[in-house]
Simulated scan of single mutants.
Amino acid sequence: MPKKCQITKKKSMLGQNRSHAMNATKRKFSLNIQYHKFWLPDENKRIKIRISSKGLRMINKFGISKIYKQFIV
């Protein structure tokens, strides 16, 4: 399963490390993704989603039921 947030659809990004001599080596910027369980009172069930920290802040702001209807279903 790819490292991707199920709410914001963000994924890891590619970039470069730069030394003092400006040599470039490839690297990967990974997201802060965790599994989190949420209770949906409308459907009376628990869901488990992969979510980034920004997605978690969106859920705190708008509510899980609105986010679930808009992004996941």
Results as ranks from 00 to 15, higher is better:
residue 67 I to W: 04
residue 52 S to Q: 01
residue 29 F to M: 12
residue 17 N to G: 04
residue 30 S to Y: 13
residue 19 S to L: 00
residue 11 K to P: 00
residue 45 K to G: 05
residue 35 Y to A: 08
residue 39 W to G: 02
residue 23 N to Y: 00
residue 71 F to A: 11
residue 5 C to R: 05
residue 70 Q to V: 08
residue 34 Q to N: 14
residue 54 K to M: 01
residue 6 Q to K: 12
residue 60 N to D: 14
residue 67 I to Y: 04
residue 18 R to N: 02
residue 52 S to A: 07
residue 2 P to Y: 08
residue 10 K to F: 07
residue 42 D to G: 07
residue 30 S to P: 02
residue 59 I to R: 06
residue 48 K to Y: 09
residue 61 K to H: 12
residue 26 K to S: 02
residue 6 Q to H: 10
residue 14 L to R: 12
residue 29 F to V: 13
residue 23 N to P: 00
residue 18 R to E: 01
residue 64 I to V: 13
residue 14 L to M: 10
residue 38 F to C: 10
residue 62 F to S: 03
residue 36 H to G: 03
residue 54 K to N: 09
residue 9 K to P: 00
residue 18 R to W: 00
residue 63 G to M: 07
residue 30 S to T: 09
residue 46 R to Q: 12
residue 72 I to N: 15
residue 38 F to L: 12
residue 17 N to V: 01
residue 21 A to K: 02
residue 59 I to H: 05
residue 42 D to M: 10
residue 58 M to V: 06
residue 58 M to W: 03
residue 37 K to D: 09
residue 14 L to T: 08
residue 49 I to S: 04
residue 6 Q to M: 12
residue 44 N to L: 12
residue 56 L to R: 15
residue 51 I to G: 05
residue 65 S to N: 14
residue 72 I to W: 15
residue 61 K to R: 12
residue 24 A to K: 11
residue 60 N to W: 15
residue 16 Q to N: 15
residue 19 S to Y: 02
residue 40 L to P: 09
residue 60 N to R: 14
residue 59 I to A: 08
residue 5 C to W: 04
residue 34 Q to H: 09
residue 32 N to I: 03
residue 45 K to T: 12
residue 33 I to Y: 06
residue 53 S to N: 10
residue 29 F to H: 08
residue 20 H to T: 00
residue 47 I to E: 06
residue 69 K to P: 01
residue 15 G to S: 12
residue 49 I to Q: 04
residue 51 I to C: 11
residue 51 I to D: 01
residue 13 M to I: 11
residue 44 N to A: 13
residue 56 L to W: 10
residue 24 A to L: 03
residue 27 R to L: 05
residue 17 N to W: 01
residue 18 R to D: 00
residue 49 I to E: 02
residue 47 I to F: 08
residue 43 E to Y: 14
residue 73 V to T: 14
residue 11 K to D: 06
residue 17 N to R: 10
residue 40 L to W: 11
residue 6 Q to R: 11
residue 47 I to Y: 15
residue 20 H to V: 00
residue 31 L to N: 04
residue 51 I to L: 09
residue 1 M to R: 07
residue 70 Q to K: 14
residue 66 K to T: 04
residue 46 R to N: 13
residue 55 G to Q: 05
residue 3 K to Q: 09
residue 30 S to N: 15
residue 56 L to I: 14
residue 9 K to C: 08
residue 38 F to E: 04
residue 9 K to G: 07
residue 6 Q to C: 08
residue 17 N to P: 03
residue 18 R to Y: 03
residue 45 K to M: 14
residue 45 K to H: 14
residue 73 V to K: 15
residue 14 L to F: 06
residue 25 T to Y: 00
residue 53 S to D: 08
residue 29 F to G: 08
residue 28 K to F: 01
residue 62 F to V: 03
residue 9 K to Y: 11
residue 1 M to P: 01
residue 29 F to W: 14
residue 5 C to I: 02
residue 34 Q to W: 05
residue 40 L to S: 11
residue 21 A to D: 00
residue 51 I to Q: 02
residue 57 R to D: 10
residue 60 N to C: 08
residue 46 R to S: 12
residue 1 M to K: 07
